[in-house]
Design a protein around this nucleic acid. Sequence first.
DNA 1: TTCAAATTGCTAGTTTAGCTAGCGATATCC
DNA 2: GGATATCGCTAGCTAAACTAGCAATTTGAA
Lengths: 156, 156
Amino acid sequence: MTQPWSAQTPHDRAVMEVLHAIRAFTDAMDRMHGGMKDDMDMNATDLAALRMLIVREGRGEAVSPHQVADHLRISTASTTKLLDRLTASGHIERRPHPSDRRARVVVLTDESRATFFRHFGERLGQMRSVADRYSDDELAVIARFLSGMSETLDPR
Amino acid sequence: MTQPWSAQTPHDRAVMEVLHAIRAFTDAMDRMHGGMKDDMDMNATDLAALRMLIVREGRGEAVSPHQVADHLRISTASTTKLLDRLTASGHIERRPHPSDRRARVVVLTDESRATFFRHFGERLGQMRSVADRYSDDELAVIARFLSGMSETLDPR
DNA sequence: TTCAAATTGCTAGTTTAGCTAGCGATATCC
DNA sequence: GGATATCGCTAGCTAAACTAGCAATTTGAA
């Protein structure tokens, strides 16, 4: 069987090596998230929800249960249970939505944020230390590359 | 609360942007895998097993059920059921191990490989088209960066 | 060489976390 | 003002993980 990613020209070879590196990197990130999930004693989806909440909070955005469901691509029913788990473990609170009385706003607790960054901190430091080995121009190229991939693969 | 990834210097800012891009890219890859899983009518773990088998086959390595369990970080019992599902759906076969009569070797069927690349092909093409926008030198930097991250995050 | 310990993949039974269907409360649109 | 849509929820079902433990086989130490 011919490898669909076999290379001929030097450029093809460079592309192939990037694609290979992407595969390995994606695996490594999956394992990193797996490790965090174990460390924090959570399941993968609940941790993904937490990450989403951290990111959205960083942008100053409020998050509804519906948005959690959409982001995780699970049903709202499953999301209700997920939020129940996160509430029971003290990670989030459900607040009333300021203008829509059907809706809720999901808010991280201070303890949850602290716990997350305590466990994420070491990994973040490792990632920083790798990035520090690259010049600003190189980092800009890398960021642009990754953003381009994201946009192409998941245009939203 | 101070953002743990807040930036001061231009370099800090470049690092921060790369980390942000990594987060978005990881999400996009997760969604890409989610899309493939839907298209191929499989669950996420089974698809991850398939990807692992494709990669290992590409390296000419034989794969045991134990190695599947280790890679996916699930129990061997769960792996037995996973392999049952993949066997039932015609994706794999369990062959006897040539020298260890306790062990098995998991082998992809031709149809499975074909199906995988049929569904992966379009995405692979998109990824190639993004990579094609970069010079060989840039691609080399990106590949080195991603490999460094992988190695740091998941030394194995 | 022999026999205890370790390893492989499996079965059985349990738990977790998803799903669909559908409900009451509220908001939105003619 | 009344039909229709949306929000988050409950109830009940299912898929896929888990732990415990087994027979067959291999490995390693006396």
